[in-house]
């Protein structure tokens, strides 16, 4: 294949002494905190790229947020504290996890209404149990 003949030799890379970790792109050493951080990053919306969570975005600001999240969790903050901090800066929009409050009630009440209303409709279709 053409691609193979055009293959460029492996770049020579000199191993460098390990520099400081950049938490925008690197995991925390503690697996529990890293799992918390990833769960939080999955639910924070990238303010530059609109539709994506910051855990799946190449935007610089998304990287900054990932770094901030890992650093603050490593320093002992809880994920919900960090989420609240971000909401305080950017508003509810930044969190994919809607807060339970008056404005967001329809998110829960509408499905509940559908369940109850649907249940009522189904019950009307049942044949009264004939004693056997």
């Amino acid at each position: 294949m053409r691609a193979r003949s055009m293959l460029v030799a492996l770049a020579l890379i000199v191993a460098s002494p390990a520099s400081a970790q950049d938490y925008a792109e690197e995991s925390l050493a503690d697996p529990v905190k890293e799992a918390q951080a990833v769960a939080l990053m999955d639910s924070i919306r990238c303010v530059v790229c609109q539709g994506q969570p910051i855990s799946g975005s190449n935007a610089d600001l998304a990287g900054d947020m990932r770094r901030m999240i890992r650093e603050r969790l490593a320093a002992g903050d809880s994920p919900e504290q960090v989420r609240a901090w971000l909401i305080g800066k950017y508003g509810d929009w930044v969190s994919f996890k809607p807060e339970v409050k008056g404005q967001t009630m329809p998110l829960w009440l509408v499905p509940l209404g559908a369940l109850v209303g649907g249940g009522w409709l189904v019950s009307r279709r049942l044949r009264p149990k004939v004693p056997t």
Binding site: A24, V48, L61, G63, D64, R67, M68, G88, K89, Y90
Partner: peptide, 12 residues
Amino acid sequence: GGRAQMAFGSAG
């Protein structure tokens, strides 16, 4: 690392 930008709530 975007610290000030985030502290201001600046998105871009």
